[in-house]
């Protein structure tokens, strides 16, 4: 964990509103695991005040990647960075997906920008297990297949792939998608994760959820990012105990 000054190497538009940033970050690149995140100081002044959390999307040698869509001030500033710009980044934060166990299929379920952590996970798992990716978006402009393998798409309006949610797509094909050695790795909006949690329980399949919550610090000192434990009457912290949780561990 470090507060590293990273240097922007490229900024690519993957979709009208979705960007991929590559930056030189030797320390974070050497430490980070899939679905860990960084807390980014998007400006060098006090506006916006708080850092913004982003998953590390991919790693290549000394470089890390972030994928983001522009919707507020913080992401707008990030989208206007130039090659060579320095950005202060705290990371890697949180714990990543747990794949150091015996399984033979990674079923990736992602909604919207929830695809962000999966290029890196795919890279790490590609030679070890079968990978199947189901991704969902509002329409074809919100679908990003960068770095993924074996992708099926669902869009709300049917402009690409299956018409419906990614959960509908999963439900429709569950017999062929899930067997004894399958682990679901998922990231996306909370309503989607909630539905998936239920699905995993009903179908008795291991499922790891990468969750989101508004954050201030990102490393456990503000207590700002609670998620309720399902086993004890207490809150866990998304930034420190997560962002990845076993779907049985939390109440969404």
């Amino acid at each position: 964990m470090i507060n590293e000054k990273i240097i922007v190497q490229s900024l690519e538009k993957l979709q009208p509103n979705i960007y991929l940033m590559k930056a030189k970050a030797p320390v974070i690149a050497s430490q980070v695991k899939p679905s860990q995140f960084c807390n980014i100081k998007v400006s060098d002044n006090d506006f916006p005040l708080l850092r913004r959390p982003f998953s590390v999307c991919d790693v290549q040698g000394d470089s890390i990647f972030f994928m983001f869509d522009v919707h507020g001030e913080g992401t707008r500033i990030l989208s206007e960075k130039m090659i060579g710009d320095e950005i202060e980044v705290l990371g890697p934060l949180g714990n990543g997906f747990n794949y150091n166990k015996k399984f033979n299929k990674a079923l990736i379920i992602a909604g919207g920008l929830g695809v962000a952590p999966f290029p890196f996970l795919t890279k790490v798992l590609i030679d070890k297990v079968e990978i199947v990716s189901l991704i969902g978006g509002r329409n074809k402009n919100y679908v990003v297949k960068y770095g993924l393998k074996n992708v099926s798409v669902a869009t709300d309006d049917g402009s690409e792939g299956y018409k419906g949610t990614v959960l509908d797509l999963l439900e429709a094909n569950k017999e062929s998608l899930i067997d004894d050695g399958t682990i679901i790795f998922s990231c996306g909006p909370t309503p989607m994760l909630k539905a998936l949690q239920k699905f995993a329980e009903q179908n008795n399949v291991e499922c790891q959820l990468s969750t989101e919550c508004a954050m201030a610090c990102g490393f456990g000192i503000c207590q700002g990012c609670p998620v309720h434990s399902s086993t004890e009457d207490k809150y866990l912290l998304v930034c420190k105990d997560g962002p990845v949780f076993d779907s049985k561990e939390i109440v969404l």
Binding site: P48, L50, A214, G224, C225, P226, V227
Partner: peptide, 11 residues
């Protein structure tokens, strides 16, 4: 103390 449910913070 358990603390309050989310959302706990906003910028």
């Amino acid at each position: 103390r358990k603390g309050n449910p989310p959302q706990r913070i906003v910028e």
